[in-house]
Nucleic acid binder design. Structure first.
Lengths: 204, 204
DNA sequence: TGAATTATGTATCGATCAACACAGAAAGCA
DNA sequence: TGCTTTCTGTGTTGATCGATACATAATTCA
Protein backbone atom coordinates (compact mmCIF):
# COMPACT_ATOMS: atom_id res chain seq x y z
CA UNK A 1 0.00 0.00 0.00
CA UNK A 2 2.14 2.90 -1.22
CA UNK A 3 1.65 6.33 0.33
CA UNK A 4 0.73 9.35 -1.67
CA UNK A 5 2.92 12.42 -1.68
CA UNK A 6 6.50 12.99 -0.62
CA UNK A 7 7.63 10.33 1.82
CA UNK A 8 8.80 11.18 5.31
CA UNK A 9 12.60 11.36 5.56
CA UNK A 10 12.85 10.41 9.24
CA UNK A 11 11.82 7.37 11.25
CA UNK A 12 8.65 8.35 13.06
CA UNK A 13 9.05 5.72 15.78
CA UNK A 14 12.69 6.59 16.40
CA UNK A 15 11.78 10.28 16.61
CA UNK A 16 8.98 9.46 19.05
CA UNK A 17 11.42 7.55 21.19
CA UNK A 18 13.74 10.55 21.32
CA UNK A 19 10.81 12.76 22.27
CA UNK A 20 9.87 10.32 25.01
CA UNK A 21 13.36 10.61 26.47
CA UNK A 22 13.20 14.40 26.45
CA UNK A 23 9.81 14.41 28.19
CA UNK A 24 11.11 11.81 30.62
CA UNK A 25 14.10 13.93 31.57
CA UNK A 26 12.45 17.35 31.59
CA UNK A 27 8.75 16.77 32.13
CA UNK A 28 5.96 18.03 29.91
CA UNK A 29 6.29 21.73 30.43
CA UNK A 30 10.06 21.62 30.87
CA UNK A 31 10.49 20.16 27.41
CA UNK A 32 10.31 22.92 24.80
CA UNK A 33 9.59 22.38 21.14
CA UNK A 34 13.21 23.36 20.50
CA UNK A 35 14.42 20.66 22.90
CA UNK A 36 12.21 18.13 21.20
CA UNK A 37 13.06 18.97 17.59
CA UNK A 38 16.77 19.05 18.42
CA UNK A 39 16.60 15.58 19.96
CA UNK A 40 14.37 14.24 17.21
CA UNK A 41 16.55 15.64 14.45
CA UNK A 42 13.70 17.39 12.67
CA UNK A 43 12.23 20.86 12.30
CA UNK A 44 9.08 21.95 14.04
CA UNK A 45 6.78 21.76 10.97
CA UNK A 46 7.71 18.09 10.63
CA UNK A 47 6.91 17.56 14.28
CA UNK A 48 3.49 19.15 13.93
CA UNK A 49 2.76 17.34 10.66
CA UNK A 50 3.67 13.98 12.17
CA UNK A 51 2.28 14.31 15.70
CA UNK A 52 -0.21 17.18 15.65
CA UNK A 53 0.80 19.13 18.73
CA UNK A 54 3.07 19.04 21.76
CA UNK A 55 0.24 17.61 23.79
CA UNK A 56 -0.52 14.83 21.28
CA UNK A 57 3.19 14.05 21.06
CA UNK A 58 3.35 13.70 24.82
CA UNK A 59 0.37 11.36 24.88
CA UNK A 60 2.00 9.17 22.24
CA UNK A 61 5.27 9.29 24.18
CA UNK A 62 3.60 8.11 27.39
CA UNK A 63 1.96 5.27 25.52
CA UNK A 64 5.32 4.23 24.11
CA UNK A 65 6.86 4.54 27.56
CA UNK A 66 4.19 2.33 29.06
CA UNK A 67 4.79 -0.34 26.44
CA UNK A 68 8.59 -0.22 26.32
CA UNK A 69 9.61 0.61 29.87
CA UNK A 70 6.67 -0.81 31.74
CA UNK A 71 6.78 -4.31 30.30
CA UNK A 72 9.43 -5.77 32.61
CA UNK A 73 7.82 -4.35 35.70
CA UNK A 74 4.31 -5.44 34.92
CA UNK A 75 5.11 -8.80 33.46
CA UNK A 76 6.93 -9.52 36.73
CA UNK A 77 3.66 -8.81 38.46
CA UNK A 78 1.65 -11.17 36.28
CA UNK A 79 4.08 -14.05 35.93
CA UNK A 80 5.27 -14.56 39.49
CA UNK A 81 3.82 -17.71 41.07
CA UNK A 82 2.75 -16.04 44.31
CA UNK A 83 1.38 -12.61 45.12
CA UNK A 84 4.24 -11.99 47.48
CA UNK A 85 6.82 -12.77 44.84
CA UNK A 86 4.83 -10.73 42.37
CA UNK A 87 4.98 -7.63 44.56
CA UNK A 88 8.62 -8.17 45.44
CA UNK A 89 9.69 -8.63 41.82
CA UNK A 90 7.55 -5.66 40.86
CA UNK A 91 9.42 -3.49 43.33
CA UNK A 92 12.83 -4.93 42.51
CA UNK A 93 12.26 -4.39 38.80
CA UNK A 94 11.24 -0.86 39.65
CA UNK A 95 14.47 -0.33 41.58
CA UNK A 96 16.44 -1.71 38.67
CA UNK A 97 14.63 0.34 36.03
CA UNK A 98 14.80 3.58 38.03
CA UNK A 99 18.54 3.35 38.58
CA UNK A 100 19.75 2.45 35.09
CA UNK A 101 22.54 4.72 33.94
CA UNK A 102 22.47 6.67 30.71
CA UNK A 103 18.78 7.41 30.96
CA UNK A 104 16.49 9.63 32.97
CA UNK A 105 15.93 8.47 36.53
CA UNK A 106 12.50 7.74 37.91
CA UNK A 107 9.28 7.26 36.02
CA UNK A 108 7.81 9.39 33.24
CA UNK A 109 4.29 8.52 34.34
CA UNK A 110 4.96 9.52 37.93
CA UNK A 111 6.99 12.67 37.28
CA UNK A 112 5.92 13.91 33.87
CA UNK A 113 3.28 16.47 34.83
CA UNK A 114 2.47 16.83 38.50
CA UNK A 115 1.30 20.43 38.48
CA UNK A 116 -2.16 20.78 37.04
CA UNK A 117 -2.88 23.77 34.90
CA UNK A 118 -5.73 24.80 32.67
CA UNK A 119 -3.52 24.37 29.62
CA UNK A 120 -2.43 20.84 30.46
CA UNK A 121 -5.44 19.25 32.04
CA UNK A 122 -5.50 16.46 29.44
CA UNK A 123 -1.85 15.67 30.17
CA UNK A 124 -2.40 15.43 33.92
CA UNK A 125 -5.55 13.40 33.44
CA UNK A 126 -3.76 10.92 31.19
CA UNK A 127 -0.93 10.42 33.66
CA UNK A 128 -3.33 10.16 36.56
CA UNK A 129 -5.28 7.51 34.73
CA UNK A 130 -2.11 5.53 34.09
CA UNK A 131 -1.08 5.79 37.72
CA UNK A 132 -4.52 4.59 38.75
CA UNK A 133 -4.14 1.64 36.38
CA UNK A 134 -0.92 0.71 38.14
CA UNK A 135 -2.73 0.47 41.44
CA UNK A 136 -5.50 -1.52 39.76
CA UNK A 137 -3.00 -4.04 38.39
CA UNK A 138 -1.52 -4.45 41.87
CA UNK A 139 -4.97 -4.82 43.32
CA UNK A 140 -5.96 -7.54 40.84
CA UNK A 141 -2.82 -9.53 41.59
CA UNK A 142 -3.44 -9.30 45.32
CA UNK A 143 -7.06 -10.34 44.94
CA UNK A 144 -5.86 -13.31 42.97
CA UNK A 145 -3.63 -14.16 45.92
CA UNK A 146 -6.66 -14.14 48.18
CA UNK A 147 -8.70 -16.21 45.72
CA UNK A 148 -5.93 -18.77 45.48
CA UNK A 149 -5.70 -19.08 49.24
CA UNK A 150 -2.21 -17.62 49.47
CA UNK A 151 -3.52 -14.68 51.45
CA UNK A 152 -6.09 -14.70 54.23
CA UNK A 153 -9.65 -13.85 53.31
CA UNK A 154 -9.54 -10.71 55.41
CA UNK A 155 -6.39 -9.43 53.71
CA UNK A 156 -7.04 -5.80 52.81
CA UNK A 157 -6.07 -5.82 49.15
CA UNK A 158 -7.05 -2.18 48.65
CA UNK A 159 -4.83 -0.92 51.43
CA UNK A 160 -1.91 -3.02 50.25
CA UNK A 161 -2.36 -1.93 46.63
CA UNK A 162 -2.45 1.71 47.66
CA UNK A 163 0.59 1.24 49.83
CA UNK A 164 2.76 -0.48 47.22
CA UNK A 165 1.71 1.89 44.45
CA UNK A 166 2.60 4.82 46.69
CA UNK A 167 5.97 3.29 47.53
CA UNK A 168 6.70 3.02 43.83
CA UNK A 169 5.81 6.68 43.34
CA UNK A 170 8.13 7.63 46.16
CA UNK A 171 10.90 5.66 44.52
CA UNK A 172 10.63 7.94 41.48
CA UNK A 173 11.45 10.96 43.60
CA UNK A 174 14.14 8.99 45.39
CA UNK A 175 15.65 8.09 42.01
CA UNK A 176 15.47 11.69 40.84
CA UNK A 177 17.49 12.62 43.89
CA UNK A 178 20.27 10.41 42.57
CA UNK A 179 19.61 7.36 44.72
CA UNK A 180 21.74 4.33 43.88
CA UNK A 181 20.20 0.98 43.12
CA UNK A 182 21.12 -0.26 46.57
CA UNK A 183 19.37 2.75 48.14
CA UNK A 184 16.25 1.97 46.12
CA UNK A 185 16.50 -1.64 47.25
CA UNK A 186 16.49 -0.41 50.85
CA UNK A 187 13.06 1.00 50.17
CA UNK A 188 12.03 -2.30 48.63
CA UNK A 189 13.26 -4.12 51.72
CA UNK A 190 11.24 -1.84 53.96
CA UNK A 191 8.13 -2.23 51.83
CA UNK A 192 8.43 -6.02 51.78
CA UNK A 193 8.88 -6.07 55.53
CA UNK A 194 5.32 -4.79 55.64
CA UNK A 195 4.14 -7.86 53.76
CA UNK A 196 4.72 -10.17 56.66
CA UNK A 197 2.54 -8.19 59.03
CA UNK A 198 -0.14 -7.50 56.44
CA UNK A 199 -0.39 -11.10 55.28
CA UNK A 200 -0.43 -12.62 58.74
CA UNK A 201 -3.02 -10.40 60.40
CA UNK A 202 -4.88 -8.85 57.53
CA UNK A 203 -3.80 -5.31 56.72
CA UNK A 204 -2.74 -3.14 59.64
CA UNK B 1 14.55 52.55 64.11
CA UNK B 2 12.58 54.28 61.34
CA UNK B 3 13.34 53.35 57.72
CA UNK B 4 14.51 55.87 55.22
CA UNK B 5 12.52 56.48 52.06
CA UNK B 6 8.99 55.67 51.06
CA UNK B 7 7.66 52.81 53.14
CA UNK B 8 6.46 49.58 51.56
CA UNK B 9 2.69 49.56 51.11
CA UNK B 10 2.27 45.80 51.35
CA UNK B 11 3.04 43.22 54.03
CA UNK B 12 6.18 41.47 52.89
CA UNK B 13 5.52 38.32 54.93
CA UNK B 14 1.91 38.09 53.78
CA UNK B 15 3.02 38.51 50.18
CA UNK B 16 5.66 35.83 50.66
CA UNK B 17 3.01 33.50 51.99
CA UNK B 18 0.88 34.08 48.90
CA UNK B 19 3.89 33.38 46.71
CA UNK B 20 4.53 30.19 48.65
CA UNK B 21 1.01 29.00 47.91
CA UNK B 22 1.41 29.71 44.21
CA UNK B 23 4.70 27.82 44.04
CA UNK B 24 3.13 25.05 46.07
CA UNK B 25 0.24 24.66 43.67
CA UNK B 26 2.08 25.19 40.39
CA UNK B 27 5.71 24.33 41.02
CA UNK B 28 8.67 26.59 40.35
CA UNK B 29 8.54 26.78 36.60
CA UNK B 30 4.76 26.54 36.42
CA UNK B 31 4.41 29.70 38.50
CA UNK B 32 4.85 32.74 36.31
CA UNK B 33 5.70 36.20 37.57
CA UNK B 34 2.19 37.22 36.54
CA UNK B 35 0.72 34.42 38.67
CA UNK B 36 2.86 35.51 41.59
CA UNK B 37 2.22 39.24 41.39
CA UNK B 38 -1.51 38.65 40.97
CA UNK B 39 -1.61 36.49 44.10
CA UNK B 40 0.66 38.81 46.04
CA UNK B 41 -1.32 41.91 45.07
CA UNK B 42 1.72 43.81 43.85
CA UNK B 43 3.41 44.73 40.56
CA UNK B 44 6.53 43.04 39.35
CA UNK B 45 8.96 45.89 40.22
CA UNK B 46 7.82 45.61 43.83
CA UNK B 47 8.41 41.88 43.70
CA UNK B 48 11.93 42.32 42.40
CA UNK B 49 12.68 45.15 44.83
CA UNK B 50 11.54 43.10 47.80
CA UNK B 51 12.79 39.64 46.86
CA UNK B 52 15.44 40.05 44.18
CA UNK B 53 14.40 37.45 41.63
CA UNK B 54 11.99 34.61 41.04
CA UNK B 55 14.64 32.18 42.21
CA UNK B 56 15.34 34.08 45.43
CA UNK B 57 11.62 34.37 46.06
CA UNK B 58 11.26 30.63 45.68
CA UNK B 59 14.08 29.96 48.11
CA UNK B 60 12.45 32.24 50.68
CA UNK B 61 9.12 30.54 50.04
CA UNK B 62 10.54 27.08 50.67
CA UNK B 63 12.12 28.30 53.88
CA UNK B 64 8.76 29.70 55.01
CA UNK B 65 7.08 26.45 53.98
CA UNK B 66 9.54 24.43 56.01
CA UNK B 67 8.90 26.56 59.07
CA UNK B 68 5.13 26.91 58.80
CA UNK B 69 3.98 23.65 57.28
CA UNK B 70 6.74 21.38 58.48
CA UNK B 71 6.50 22.16 62.16
CA UNK B 72 3.66 19.81 63.04
CA UNK B 73 5.19 16.93 61.16
CA UNK B 74 8.68 17.30 62.55
CA UNK B 75 7.72 18.17 66.07
CA UNK B 76 5.73 14.93 66.09
CA UNK B 77 8.95 13.18 65.23
CA UNK B 78 10.90 14.76 68.06
CA UNK B 79 8.35 14.74 70.82
CA UNK B 80 6.93 11.23 70.62
CA UNK B 81 8.11 9.03 73.48
CA UNK B 82 9.12 6.09 71.32
CA UNK B 83 10.66 5.82 67.87
CA UNK B 84 7.72 3.80 66.68
CA UNK B 85 5.23 6.39 67.81
CA UNK B 86 7.47 9.06 66.35
CA UNK B 87 7.40 7.49 62.89
CA UNK B 88 3.70 6.75 63.07
CA UNK B 89 2.80 10.26 64.15
CA UNK B 90 5.15 11.63 61.52
CA UNK B 91 3.27 9.71 58.83
CA UNK B 92 -0.16 10.46 60.23
CA UNK B 93 0.62 14.15 60.41
CA UNK B 94 1.80 13.90 56.84
CA UNK B 95 -1.49 12.29 55.80
CA UNK B 96 -3.38 15.02 57.60
CA UNK B 97 -1.32 17.86 56.15
CA UNK B 98 -1.40 16.49 52.60
CA UNK B 99 -5.17 16.15 52.53
CA UNK B 100 -6.26 19.47 53.99
CA UNK B 101 -8.85 21.18 51.85
CA UNK B 102 -8.50 24.69 50.50
CA UNK B 103 -4.81 24.37 49.92
CA UNK B 104 -2.47 22.64 47.48
CA UNK B 105 -2.16 18.92 48.00
CA UNK B 106 1.15 17.22 48.64
CA UNK B 107 4.43 18.81 49.63
CA UNK B 108 6.14 21.83 48.12
CA UNK B 109 9.55 20.39 48.95
CA UNK B 110 8.78 17.09 47.26
CA UNK B 111 6.96 18.42 44.19
CA UNK B 112 8.27 21.93 43.67
CA UNK B 113 11.01 21.29 41.10
CA UNK B 114 11.68 17.70 40.12
CA UNK B 115 13.06 18.30 36.65
CA UNK B 116 16.59 19.58 36.77
CA UNK B 117 17.59 22.17 34.25
CA UNK B 118 20.59 24.39 33.77
CA UNK B 119 18.49 27.41 34.63
CA UNK B 120 17.19 26.05 37.91
CA UNK B 121 20.02 24.01 39.35
CA UNK B 122 20.02 26.06 42.55
CA UNK B 123 16.32 25.41 43.01
CA UNK B 124 16.66 21.67 42.58
CA UNK B 125 19.70 21.57 44.82
CA UNK B 126 17.88 23.41 47.57
CA UNK B 127 14.90 21.09 47.47
CA UNK B 128 17.13 18.04 47.30
CA UNK B 129 19.01 19.24 50.34
CA UNK B 130 15.77 19.72 52.25
CA UNK B 131 14.57 16.25 51.27
CA UNK B 132 17.87 14.81 52.44
CA UNK B 133 17.44 16.63 55.73
CA UNK B 134 14.09 14.93 56.17
CA UNK B 135 15.72 11.55 55.89
CA UNK B 136 18.45 12.66 58.30
CA UNK B 137 15.88 13.70 60.89
CA UNK B 138 14.20 10.31 60.60
CA UNK B 139 17.56 8.61 60.87
CA UNK B 140 18.48 10.49 64.04
CA UNK B 141 15.19 9.59 65.68
CA UNK B 142 15.65 5.92 64.81
CA UNK B 143 19.22 5.88 66.09
CA UNK B 144 17.94 7.38 69.30
CA UNK B 145 15.52 4.45 69.49
CA UNK B 146 18.44 2.05 69.23
CA UNK B 147 20.48 3.97 71.80
CA UNK B 148 17.57 3.91 74.23
CA UNK B 149 17.10 0.18 73.83
CA UNK B 150 13.71 0.42 72.17
CA UNK B 151 15.09 -1.07 68.98
CA UNK B 152 17.54 -3.97 68.61
CA UNK B 153 21.19 -3.11 68.13
CA UNK B 154 21.16 -4.59 64.63
CA UNK B 155 18.18 -2.50 63.55
CA UNK B 156 19.08 -1.01 60.19
CA UNK B 157 18.29 2.64 60.83
CA UNK B 158 19.52 3.72 57.39
CA UNK B 159 17.22 1.36 55.55
CA UNK B 160 14.25 2.32 57.69
CA UNK B 161 14.96 6.04 57.30
CA UNK B 162 15.21 5.69 53.52
CA UNK B 163 12.03 3.66 53.44
CA UNK B 164 9.91 6.03 55.50
CA UNK B 165 11.24 9.11 53.72
CA UNK B 166 10.39 7.50 50.39
CA UNK B 167 6.90 6.60 51.57
CA UNK B 168 6.35 10.22 52.48
CA UNK B 169 7.48 11.32 49.03
CA UNK B 170 5.09 8.85 47.45
CA UNK B 171 2.29 10.28 49.56
CA UNK B 172 2.86 13.65 47.89
CA UNK B 173 2.12 12.17 44.49
CA UNK B 174 -0.78 10.22 45.95
CA UNK B 175 -2.17 13.45 47.39
CA UNK B 176 -1.72 15.26 44.07
CA UNK B 177 -3.84 12.56 42.51
CA UNK B 178 -6.66 13.62 44.79
CA UNK B 179 -6.29 10.92 47.42
CA UNK B 180 -8.55 11.32 50.44
CA UNK B 181 -7.21 11.36 53.95
CA UNK B 182 -8.36 7.80 54.46
CA UNK B 183 -6.51 6.71 51.32
CA UNK B 184 -3.35 8.36 52.63
CA UNK B 185 -3.87 6.61 55.94
CA UNK B 186 -3.96 3.31 54.07
CA UNK B 187 -0.43 4.02 52.97
CA UNK B 188 0.47 4.88 56.56
CA UNK B 189 -1.01 1.60 57.72
CA UNK B 190 1.05 -0.30 55.18
CA UNK B 191 4.21 1.52 56.12
CA UNK B 192 3.68 0.91 59.82
CA UNK B 193 3.05 -2.76 59.14
CA UNK B 194 6.68 -2.85 58.07
CA UNK B 195 7.75 -1.63 61.45
CA UNK B 196 6.89 -4.85 63.19
CA UNK B 197 9.06 -6.95 60.92
CA UNK B 198 11.92 -4.47 60.88
CA UNK B 199 12.01 -3.99 64.61
CA UNK B 200 11.78 -7.66 65.48
CA UNK B 201 14.42 -9.07 63.16
CA UNK B 202 16.54 -6.08 62.23
CA UNK B 203 15.67 -4.56 58.88
CA UNK B 204 14.69 -7.06 56.18
C1' DT C 1 4.31 14.12 -18.74
C1' DG C 2 1.33 16.87 -15.73
C1' DA C 3 -1.88 17.16 -11.74
C1' DA C 4 -2.54 16.02 -7.02
C1' DT C 5 -0.59 15.13 -2.64
C1' DT C 6 2.50 15.20 1.18
C1' DA C 7 6.98 16.46 3.49
C1' DT C 8 10.70 19.74 4.26
C1' DG C 9 13.29 24.10 5.39
C1' DT C 10 13.14 28.97 6.22
C1' DA C 11 11.22 32.36 8.41
C1' DT C 12 8.00 34.05 11.32
C1' DC C 13 3.56 34.63 14.03
C1' DG C 14 1.29 36.60 18.42
C1' DA C 15 1.68 35.46 23.24
C1' DT C 16 4.11 35.06 27.17
C1' DC C 17 8.35 34.60 29.74
C1' DA C 18 11.56 36.87 33.50
C1' DA C 19 13.28 41.19 34.36
C1' DC C 20 13.83 46.16 34.28
C1' DA C 21 13.84 51.67 32.88
C1' DC C 22 11.79 55.43 34.20
C1' DA C 23 9.24 58.97 36.35
C1' DG C 24 6.43 60.21 40.04
C1' DA C 25 5.08 59.52 45.00
C1' DA C 26 5.97 59.17 49.93
C1' DA C 27 8.78 58.96 53.65
C1' DG C 28 13.11 60.82 56.85
C1' DC C 29 16.64 64.26 57.47
C1' DA C 30 18.50 68.87 57.32
C1' DT D 1 11.40 74.08 52.91
C1' DG D 2 14.67 71.32 49.98
C1' DC D 3 17.48 66.93 49.60
C1' DT D 4 18.06 62.15 49.79
C1' DT D 5 16.23 57.69 49.85
C1' DT D 6 13.08 54.12 48.83
C1' DC D 7 8.84 52.34 46.89
C1' DT D 8 5.04 52.18 43.27
C1' DG D 9 2.73 51.97 38.62
C1' DT D 10 3.20 52.21 33.68
C1' DG D 11 5.28 50.57 30.08
C1' DT D 12 8.65 47.96 27.79
C1' DT D 13 12.82 44.95 26.94
C1' DG D 14 14.97 40.88 24.41
C1' DA D 15 14.25 36.00 24.64
C1' DT D 16 11.61 32.18 24.18
C1' DC D 17 7.17 29.86 24.09
C1' DG D 18 3.97 26.76 20.98
C1' DA D 19 2.44 26.80 16.52
C1' DT D 20 2.22 28.09 11.21
C1' DA D 21 2.59 30.42 6.39
C1' DC D 22 4.77 29.76 2.54
C1' DA D 23 7.51 28.16 -1.16
C1' DT D 24 9.89 24.18 -2.70
C1' DA D 25 11.02 19.25 -3.10
C1' DA D 26 9.63 14.51 -3.69
C1' DT D 27 6.44 11.13 -4.41
C1' DT D 28 1.88 8.72 -6.61
C1' DC D 29 -1.77 8.71 -9.85
C1' DA D 30 -3.75 9.56 -14.39
Amino acid sequence: MPERGRPRTFDRTAALRRAMEVFWAKGYEGASISDLTAAMGINSPSLYAAFGSKEALFLEATELYTQVEGTDIWSALEKAPTARQAVERFLRQTARAYSQTGRPQGCLIALGALHQDSSRGAICDDLRRRRAENREALLRRLERGVAEGELPADFDCGTAATFYATVQHGMSIQARDGASRSALLETVAGAMAAWIAMASTGAA
